[in-house]
């Protein structure tokens, strides 16, 4: 029953999307070849598709609509395609992953909002609409990521941050060549990327230009985060605290005397003017009341 339904839906979707695909051809995604070949380390099955559907409903459905129903948001231009369409299904897993990572025009990127696992699960969900799809698993073995060690080395003279990535295999250390490396600095709401995403050289080294003017805490401490993504070892993240930022200890914004500040920090001129006016008027009033007592006293005496 369920399968039949899907087949009918797919057929309808094919007819509809085929009509649009000609128009949209001009806006094909331009995906670098090395990204195109990337594959998931997660085996796609019903479970991954199901959790992928949850992620899809939260993050993608508002524009792309229900997969297979071609009921995406019609007001957008270009219109977001139905993801069961050939247009989408023709793409490799690596291309879909790239699209999720970068976004374009109205489509936001999800590289910071969804974990890599979740991103793959969404792809798994999308693929569940394609019966012909056969998954190619990546060579990545996530359990091996524990073996990898990232060494950070900062050269203050040149303002360069050098990373060396080594995996401590049982057989001895192995340098990670051609692995994708990103460098971040922790900020209050997220990680600020430093320089560009680069790849390690043949010795497992990667060098980043580090900005001189990045504010640190009061003594200049920065929390540096390095992220390595390797074909075999998967994703590795390492954190360290270095005193290489600009010491920042800005005063509180309410420290100065100002007209808008609290009573204790009112400008002197207001305090003096106000108090003296009130005192002077009060003094005269006291004087007058005293006079009234005097008048009364004189009358009483006589």
């Amino acid at each position: 029953m369920f399968r039949k339904n899907i087949i009918i839906k797919i057929t309808i979707a094919f007819i509809i999307t085929a009509f649009f695909s000609l128009q949209l051809n001009a806006q094909r995604w331009d995906v670098p070849s090395n990204k195109k070949a990337k594959n998931s380390y997660i085996k796609f099955d019903n479970n991954t598709a199901k959790s992928g559907e949850e992620v899809y409903t939260k993050n993608c459905k508002s524009c792309h609509g229900d997969v297979g129903k071609a009921n995406g948001n019609k007001t957008l231009n270009p219109q977001p395609p139905d993801l069961s369409s050939t247009l989408t299904q023709e793409l490799t897993d690596g291309e879909l992953f790239y699209i999720l990572n970068t976004g374009r025009n109205a489509m936001p990127n999800f590289k910071n909002t969804l974990s890599e696992e979740d991103r793959w699960k969404v792809i798994s969900y999308i693929r569940s609409f394609n019966k012909k799809y056969v998954q190619v698993l990546s060579k990545t073995d996530p359990s091996k990521s524990k073996l990898v060690k990232i060494n950070m080395n900062f050269n203050a003279a040149t303002n360069k941050m050098n990373l060396s990535v080594v995996a401590n295999e049982a057989s001895g250390p192995v340098v990670l060549k051609d692995a994708e490396v990103m460098l971040f600095v922790s900020r209050y709401f997220g990680k600020l990327q430093i320089d560009k995403t680069i790849r390690t050289d043949k010795d497992g080294n990667a060098t980043f230009n580090f900005p001189k003017d990045l504010p640190g805490d009061s003594i200049g401490n920065l929390t540096i985060v390095a992220k390595v993504s390797d074909e075999i070892y998967g994703e590795i993240e390492s954190q360290t605290k270095l005193t290489i930022g600009v010491p920042t200890d800005k005063p509180s914004l309410t420290a100065k005397r100002a007209i808008w500040n609290v009573l204790k920090l009112a400008p002197w001129w207001i305090i003096i003017t106000y108090t003296s006016i009130v005192l002077i008027v009060g003094l005269f009033l006291v004087l007058i009341v005293r006079n009234l007592f005097r008048i009364s006293k004189i009358g009483a005496q006589q």
């Binding site: 006079n291 008048i295 009364s296 006293k297 004189i298 009358g299 006589q302």
Partner: peptide, 14 residues
């Protein structure tokens, strides 16, 4: 009336 008697002194203060 504050014991007003209209004396010069009272008038002066007033």
């Amino acid at each position: 009336s504050l014991n007003w008697i209209g004396s010069d002194e009272q008038k002066k203060i007033l």
